[in-house]
Design a protein around this nucleic acid. Sequence first.
DNA 1: CTCAGTGCAAAGGATTTGCATGCCG
DNA 2: CGGCATGCAAATCCTTTGCACTGAG
Lengths: 157, 157
Amino acid sequence: MSTKPDATGRTIDRSDQLDIIVDRRLRHDGQRYTTQRRALIDVLAEADAPLTLPQLLERSAGLAQSSAYRNLAVLERAGVVHRIVTSDDHARWELTEDLTEHHHHLICRGCGDVTDFTVPTDIERRLDDALADAASVAGFDATHHRLDLVGLCSRCQ
Amino acid sequence: MSTKPDATGRTIDRSDQLDIIVDRRLRHDGQRYTTQRRALIDVLAEADAPLTLPQLLERSAGLAQSSAYRNLAVLERAGVVHRIVTSDDHARWELTEDLTEHHHHLICRGCGDVTDFTVPTDIERRLDDALADAASVAGFDATHHRLDLVGLCSRCQ
DNA sequence: CTCAGTGCAAAGGATTTGCATGCCG
DNA sequence: CGGCATGCAAATCCTTTGCACTGAG
């Protein structure tokens, strides 16, 4: 796990920083940062892809399905996780982009798996400009864009 | 409705051409181009946005819900319609891009409505190149990309 | 005649909700 | 103590499926 010294010279690792931010956002929403919510955040932080509910449950033992759904909803309202849907049966959750970094998704038509990827910054910037134009023409107030690549992953080809 | 003369000088309008293509693709799949399927195609061709099942039903009276679902599945397998899911309750269907033109979606977080938009060709081209690179790095066999702008439409702001 | 297409009703399945209990603050 | 968090089971709701009937070729 990556570490870096803070202003006072102490060492803080990324998961501690994440914890602090999540805690703050939950409190701001009048919610507690419970054990179960921490477990969900931990699993999502370690995954390099958005996870379905079954995947979340198998990676953090003993959570009731309904509670997981409820807690994911709470975390989403607090702005720390983001829910995405593909054409797959299950929705998937990932940490919000300000907690990770801007990225896109490779979506496999075969197994339904989703993995992250990024495109070069200069292209991203051009794209943003073009999208801002398009939104303004349509009188649309855009909060973010979503760019997916659909096809077959290496295993499914 | 736009028209253009064909090779023999006769005038064919776009919906006739569409009909011919859809018919051919359905036959190729061993399926018939029935009245109900034609109704669905007509409604989709007139809409400038992907439609949900309720929207499809109210725009083409008298179709049974289950038959509509079934026919949309047939039309999708034949490669003439495309099914998309947002975070909305319902899936949405639109004509495939080779029957319309490459476009993207404005997705409203408020009312769930989806409308089409395009970005300038040169940006689209750069984006394609970047995506091809990313796919190749990941060993991913990409068939198409999907670019959405998420936010609030003019009515929901 | 035959078989795909259709409508109705019932089944599926991911997600949500009601309710009683447990636990943190 | 009070109220939120949790687990279980039941309810929702979009979508799919079973089955009998109709209609096109």
